[in-house]
């Protein structure tokens, strides 16, 4: 079997995988990082979004081998020293979730958006959450959370 190596949340991992192993499966099943959720498994819902070399991607639509040598960040990698990341804190403060299933992907997509666009308008936020589906909230509090998170991140 091929071997894959990558940095995940700052730690180096390597392991043997079947070529068909998805990045989402590698993260959850081999590394035990179950904060990355698998919702639709058809590239639509965005619950599985992680960052690969600083860009948000759907880990259910990426092979683990495609991330060989990459720097991967999952939702578990955002909080530092017991402090929630400003975007996580903003989701909590603004009640940007109900069941919470979509939240890891929402937060990862939102952080990528703000990294590229420090002060996004409501319209920009809505456009950029195109790849993340929430079936509980109706999105209003998610949009508020992303706006507050952007301020928290220094935008």
């Amino acid at each position: 079997m091929p071997t894959v190596s990558m940095s995940v949340n700052g730690k180096q991992y390597s392991g043997e995988v079947e070529a068909r192993t998805l990045l989402s499966q590698f993260i959850r099943d081999q590394l035990g990082l179950t904060g990355t959720h698998i919702g639709c498994d058809t590239s639509q819902c965005g619950a599985c979004v992680v960052h690969v070399d600083g860009r948000s991607v759907k880990s259910c639509t990426t092979l683990a081998l495609q991330a060989d040598g990459a720097d991967v960040t999952t939702i578990e990698g955002l909080a530092k020293d017991g402090q929630l990341h400003p975007m996580q804190e903003a989701f909590r403060e603004n009640h940007g979730l109900q069941c919470g299933f979509c939240t890891p992907g929402m937060v990862m997509s939102a952080v990528d958006l703000v990294n590229n666009n420090p002060n996004p308008s409501e319209e920009t936020i809505r456009e950029n959450l195109d790849g993340n589906i929430c079936r509980c909230t109706g999105y209003h509090n998610i949009v508020k959370a992303v706006k507050a998170g952007a301020q928290g991140m220094g935008g």
Partner: peptide
């Protein structure tokens, strides 16, 4: 095209 995550790949 698609959504931001699709555009990143």
């Amino acid at each position: 095209i698609g959504d931001p995550q699709v555009r990143n790949r």
